[in-house]
């Protein structure tokens, strides 16, 4: 494999090195690439949102299929323009109310079901005979204790004394071990991303790696 002759690969390699240079320190080249990145990604976002959210959900139903019901969201959306003047800005409260109200309503039972009901169900502890082995029971017991002590940690109206108690401390210990585990688990995934970039530099671009 030889050094790449594609102009796009050279550009990508330059951009990659420019981003890495930030690790050393903030510099002119990085700042230029950052500005380029922000501009491209903002432009990309706007086009994609218009194409995938506005066109199918407002434009087509209203202006192509002439479904007049869609005049409602269209007018609600137009009210965003009110924010351009301080005098009319209060009108934006109307589309906010629609989005926040319907979002909060739809979320209420759903979040309770997935976060509370399902998790409580998963935590239920039964007699040791219910489990295939003593080990499985002990594991279920540890989860049980962990969930209860973490819940204790979140008590807001508890006194100062319980704050230092063994139950809350156990809860904190569970939280920290869990966080450590997630942290460690992510390391490998991030390293593989770095390896991917290095492979691009030394393989695709320079042709040293195969």
């Amino acid at each position: 494999m030889a050094i790449s002759s594609s102009i796009w690969v050279w550009i990508a390699a330059f951009l990659t090195l420019a981003v890495f240079s930030f690790l050393y320190k903030d510099n002119i080249i990085y700042k230029m690439v950052e500005a380029l990145f922000v501009g491209v990604s903002a432009g990309y976002s706007i086009v994609i949102i218009l194409k995938h959210s506005f066109v199918p959900n407002i434009w087509k139903p209203l202006f192509v299929s002439h479904n007049l019901l869609y005049l409602i969201p269209f007018l609600l959306g137009l009210l965003f323009f009110a924010m351009l003047s301080r005098k009319t800005a209060y009108l934006t409260h109307i589309p906010f109310a629609f989005l926040i109200g319907s979002g909060a309503g739809f979320a209420l039972p759903l979040v309770f079901q997935t976060n509370v009901m399902a998790q409580v169900k998963g935590t239920m502890l039964f007699a040791p005979s219910h489990y295939p082995s003593l080990g499985a029971f002990i594991n279920a017991l540890i989860i049980f204790i962990g969930v209860l002590t973490v819940l204790f940690y979140f008590f807001f109206s508890r006194g100062e004394k319980t704050n230092r108690g063994i139950i809350v401390k156990t809860g904190i210990a569970f939280i920290m071990i869990g966080f450590g585990a997630s942290f460690g688990y992510t390391v490998m995934a991030r390293l593989s991303l770095l390896v991917g970039r290095l492979y691009f530099l030394f393989g695709t671009w320079l042709g040293i790696l195969h």
Partner: peptide, 11 residues
């Protein structure tokens, strides 16, 4: 800024 995760983070 942007609706792209890292574009936003860079900004």
């Amino acid at each position: 800024i942007s609706s792209r995760q890292f574009g936003y983070a860079a900004g």
